[in-house]
Design a protein around this nucleic acid. Structure first.
Length: 1041
RNA sequence: GGGUGUAUAGCUCAGUGGUAGAGCACUUCGUUGACAUCGAAGGGGUCACAAGUUCGAACCUUGUUACGCCCA
């Protein structure tokens, strides 16, 4: 059956993918012929994810590497999987619930998690199916999931990942690498959880900068002086305040100080004095110190900055340096706090702290400096209220503005008035990428990895080259980040995730407790005192970490050892939360009181409700996917893996963390090469975004142009460190490339190549054309191997494009025609053998980039043979390049091009066959002509060649070692031909000038390498020969014209 | 502000010291027995700017300008 004119990707792709699957092509070790492993871990897409162009690019690169290695016989594993994407997944499920008017909190945690698993079962495989459409040959039988094996996971989700995550947490905790602490985090008021920097989008929005007066305490005054660069005084004023600029007035309530730069002379007189926060009830107005710190920018605003340690990252650092208290003002929903002490008590305590009273974090956290009437207000409402109150009190910095007004009759006039100074100013505001609400820096208790302690090995691995980052600039970024690493916040206030394996208990230690009788046992009075004053309800909690509840029992028993009898014998039990623990403990004490039965006494503990950051689990991806900690040789042999292919943007968030964690846990680098690529952008280089409307959907592209076209485009863009600009035109071009090779195969089929060649035999032809294309094949293989080995996929793709289109289709197919149509039986046979073989090589080499069309053709050429995906990559020696054949073919091609070019320029009709005169030709040329006469005549559209002198009025054709003429007297325009030759001569003389200049320079001859000099000399000789011929031709034309 | 890149044909980009390339677009011609998703021919570049190193610089060095990304 004759082949169709084009490849029907839509029809073929699914069929071919299924054939690969059936043949086991995806399985680890498919087509294995050696023991070396080659492993790539897929960067796990979110379980909520849908394929975008970035995934398509990323996975194309991985699949190319995987297919290339698999075909070369490596024990190859492409490990797929997904991460559980805490926030995103929870959001999806909450949205689903919202459809039926339900909220997450309408369910218990286990009930909700069951719904999440249901959702995952229903939609979680979306991106996997999309990756399949791209042709990705992951070993799907090993698909991993970062929540596999978690408590409550349904059938089919039993895996090791949960165990791995928990084990690592516990190990790191035991080694002192994980701790709990109160620090400033990015807080998402919608999801009510801490989020990572990665989940924060900084967007420039229109904002305001308010200017307020903070009056000096006790009505003090100072002389405020401004000077210009030369030190000349430009402004002097007696002030009783310091001017502060802020974009967030509502945070003023929590100010701990006003900071100025130590070099700022304007404020030097008042440093160390107190000023008043100009908001809040008059009777409790708080005083804060004016301190110095390097942070304030003297040239920005007034140069004085209010410091709110609990609600701003910069301020937090200043507050830490200055030992300032940090007062939290908001609750988890971003509303002004309505808990803790009353405002009056809070203000009082704050004043004591200012006066030098020592304070603990817990004490400070109970201080609620939100005035009673603002409590519970949303933060943006509170902002308005604060501004209004300050303005009303006249404590805003004022400015005079002139504006135009129209009176009732429409007459315009100008009025000048004094108004509060408020600048309109674009400000960078952080938004939650999922919730779209403004992120609030918030002081909360979280778990941290002490990254500084585990960063060393990760730095060394890259410094010592055990892991290489490409492009190299990535290494600089990596070093810079790791050298300045911050503690890593790993807790999240979500339900979906690995619950932190830490249990808390009430801190019963009572340093001031007095055992009245000194009998080491508690009586009722003592019990009551312990409960209320002993600290149980006031002090913090104690905690212990283990993989399971059973594992912490002993630790809590130890905790109780020095608590008075009989509590020290209490049974450790687990309850839901702190409140339940208090109640349960009280009940148990009451029961004991009545029964005096110590076995009734319990010490309740509760588990940390928080879960781990998804990145903590993804950090274990390399070993976790391979079954660690329960792995055996069948999977551990794939570790360390080989290459990580991922986006530059997650170098810190994921890559560096994998390095640190794998080194910390199994003491080995997770991969030897990290291939970083950029974000895929639109053709103009803009980020694709739904709002801009420039999103290219890879699935639509696959539908329209086929997966191969998209993959080839990706490969051709993949220069190291290259910018990825995706354009549909380009994709279309590579679809056309597929059609091109399809039709070359079709040509072969029409000439009965398929049934008349032996794929196992490297041809040994006689015809120069055949020898030549075999050499070109060997050359392109070498190019592709080098390119792939160096991760220069664009070079590989371009080499193949040039070979298939520029060499095979443009020349070899054309040149083979005379051999097919007019050749003798032997020529016909060797040409079929050659074409079949070369086509097979081309399909094989193209397969990693364009797997579908090549697989289809592979089966069409020789039906029923082993699938190309699991066939062997060729090994061809460059000895197959026949230098003589090469030289001869280049001469032939050069001649044909010269003739075509000349004909076109003097407007000889394309179809017209014309005679040619051989004016002079050396021996090599004569041989070349004789060997290739038929095809030169055909392709140059000649009808004869006769030796003879240069005819009058002819076009001159010059090639190496010869001159030909096309006698076209009467057909051509002499003047035009002269102009053509002059143009050629012009180009030549420019080149000659350069060459002569160089060769005349004694320094060049002396310093340049010999071969460069020799090349220049050869080049010069050839150009001079040509120049001579052209000049002669011009002279002859002048005789007649 | 810190970090890190980029600047080459109209567009998108290759090009690691020997005198500039590809694809697309453009112009002209062409239904020549694989392919019009095609073929043939052609036009088009002070390699951002300046200085330096070198016999020789798109490439190395320094500075300038513009733009991008990441982090503040």
């Amino acid at each position: 059956m004759a082949m169709e004119k084009t490849f029907d990707a839509r029809d073929a792709e699914a069929r071919i993918y299924e054939a690969w699957d059936k043949a086991g092509a995806f399985k680890a070790g498919a087509n294995k012929s050696r023991d070396e492993t080659f492993t790539i871990m897929i960067p796990p897409p979110n379980v909520t994810g849908a394929l975008h162009v970035g995934h398509a690019f990323n996975n194309t690169i991985q699949d190319i590497l995987i297919r290339w290695h698999r075909m070369r016989g490596f024990d190859t594993l492409w490990q797929p999987g997904q991460d559980h994407a805490g926030i995103a997944t929870q959001l999806m499920v909450e949205k689903e619930l919202a459809k039926s008017g339900k909220k997450r909190t309408d369910f218990t945690r286990p009930e909700f998690l069951e719904k999440v698993w249901e959702w995952k079962g229903q939609y979680g495989a979306t991106i996997i199916n999309q990756l399949k459409r791209l042709g990705s040959t992951c070993d799907w039988s090993r698909n991993a999931f970062t929540m596999s094996g978690a408590p409550g996971a349904p059938a089919g989700e039993e895996g090791n990942f949960h165990d791995a995550v928990i084990k690592v947490f516990v190990d790191m905790y035991d080694k002192g690498l994980i701790y709990r602490g109160k620090r400033l985090v990015n807080w998402d008021p919608h999801f009510e959880t801490a989020i990572s920097d990665l989940e924060v989008e900084n967007v420039e929005v229109a904002g305001h900068m308010w200017h307020f007066k903070y009056p000096l305490a006790g009505g003090e005054t100072y002389t405020y002086v401004e000077k210009d660069e030369d030190g000349t005084v430009t402004f002097t004023e007696e002030r009783d305040y310091i001017s502060i600029a802020t974009t967030r007035p509502e945070t003023m309530l929590g100010d701990g100080a006003v900071a100025v730069h130590p070099d700022d002379a304007r404020y030097a007189p008042i440093v160390g004095k107190l000023c008043e926060i100009p908001v809040g009830p008059k009777e409790h107005r708080r005083l804060i110190p004016i301190i110095t710190d390097d942070y304030p920018d003297m040239n920005f605003g007034s140069g004085a900055v209010k410091i709110t340690g609990a609600h701003d990252f910069n301020d937090y650092q200043v507050a830490k340096r200055g030992g300032l208290p940090m007062y939290r003002l908001m609750d988890t929903r971003g509303a002004m706090r309505d808990d803790g002490l009353s405002y009056a008590d809070s203000a009082l305590l704050a004043a004591e702290i200012l006066a030098g009273k020592p304070f603990t974090e817990t004490e400070v956290d109970a201080v609620n400096l939100v005035p009673d009437h603002l409590r519970g207000l949303d933060r943006f409402e509170a902002r308005k209220a604060v501004v209004d109150e300050i303005n009303a009190e006249g404590l805003a910095v004022m400015t005079r503005v002139t504006r135009k007004v129209k009176d009732d009759e429409g007459v315009e006039s100008e009025i000048t008035e004094t108004v509060p100074y408020v600048e309109d100013k674009p400000i960078m505001q952080p938004f939650g990428d999922r919730s779209k609400v403004v992120i609030e820096p918030m002081l909360t208790d979280q778990w941290y990895v002490d990254a500084e302690k585990i960063v060393g090995p990760a730095l060394n691995a890259v410094r010592e080259g055990r892991t290489k980052i490409m492009p190299e600039s990535g290494e600089k970024v990596y070093f810079h980040w790791l050298e300045n690493i911050e503690p890593w916040c790993i807790s999240r206030q979500l339900w979906w995730g690995h619950q932190i394996p830490v249990w808390y208990g009430l801190d019963l230690s009572a340093p001031n407790f007095k055992d009245d009788e000194g009998d080491g046992a508690l009586d009722e009075v003592e019990l009551f005192r312990l409960l209320t004053q002993g600290g149980m309800l006031h002090l913090g909690d104690v905690h212990h970490c283990a993989a399971e509840f059973d594992g912490v029992i002993a630790a809590f028993e130890g905790e109780l050892a020095d608590v008075p009898t009989p509590i020290n014998h209490a049974r450790i039990v687990e309850v839901d939360n702190r409140q339940a623990a208090i109640e349960r403990f009280a009940e148990s004490l009451a029961a004991y009181n009545v029964s005096q039965d110590p076995t009734k006494l319990v010490y309740p503990v509760w588990r940390d409700p928080d879960v781990l950051d998804t990145w903590f689990s993804s950090g274990l991806w390399p070993i976790g996917t391979l079954g660690w900690p329960e792995w055996d040789e069948s999977t551990s042999k794939y570790f360390p893996t080989d290459v990580l292919v991922t986006g530059q943007d997650i170098l810190f968030f994921w890559v560096a963390r994998m390095m640190m964690m794998q080194l910390a846990v199994v003491d080995e680098v997770p991969f030897h090469t990290i291939y970083l690529h950029q974000l895929v952008r639109d053709e103009k280089g803009k980020k694709m975004s739904k709002t801009t409307g420039n999103v290219i959907d890879p699935l639509e592209i696959i539908d329209e142009y086929g997966a191969d076209a998209l993959r080839f485009t990706n490969a051709s863009m993949a220069s190291i460190g290259g910018v990825l600009k995706l354009s549909v035109d380009r994709i279309k071009g590579y679809r056309n490339f597929g059609t091109k090779i399809w039709n070359a195969a079709r040509f072969a089929e029409m000439n009965e190549v398929f049934e008349n060649y032996d794929p196992a035999v490297i041809p040994t032809p006689n015809a120069t054309v055949n020898k030549w294309i075999i050499g070109e094949t060997a050359k392109v293989l070498a190019e592709v191997d080098t390119a792939f080995a160096e991760y220069r996929f664009n070079d590989g793709a371009n080499a193949l494009y040039g070979f298939v289109w520029g060499k095979f289709c443009d020349w070899y197919v054309e040149l083979s025609k005379p051999l097919f149509y007019d050749g003798d039986a032997a020529t016909l046979a060797e040409t079929r053998q050659t074409m079949g073989w070369v086509l097979d090589q081309a399909l094989t080499l193209l397969h990693p980039i364009m797997p579908f069309i090549t697989e289809e053709l592979w089966g069409t050429v020789k039906p029923g043979r082993r699938l190309l995906a699991i066939s062997d990559w060729p090994e061809l020696s460059l000895d197959l390049v026949d230098a003589d054949a090469d030289r001869e073919m280049n001469w032939v091609i050069d001649l044909i091009e010269s003739i075509r070019s000349s004909r076109a320029e003097v407007h000889v009709p394309a179809g017209l066959k014309i005679p040619m005169v051989q004016v002079e030709l050396d021996e090599a040329g004569k041989t070349a002509w004789a060997n290739n006469e038929a095809l030169i005549m055909k392709l140059a559209r000649l009808d004869s060649l006769t030796p003879g002198p240069m005819p009058k009025g002819a076009i001159t054709i010059t090639v190496g070692g010869g001159t030909f003429a096309l006698p076209l007297e009467g057909v051509i325009d002499i003047a035009e031909e002269k102009a053509r030759l002059e143009k050629v001569l012009g180009k030549l003389s420019k080149e000659l000038g350069g060459l002569r200049g160089r060769l005349k320079n004694p320094n060049f001859v002396a310093s340049a390498p010999e071969e460069v000099v020799a090349e220049a000399q050869e080049n010069l000789a050839a150009r001079e020969e040509e120049e001579g011929k052209i000049k002669a031709a011009l002279a002859r034309l002048s005789e007649i014209g």
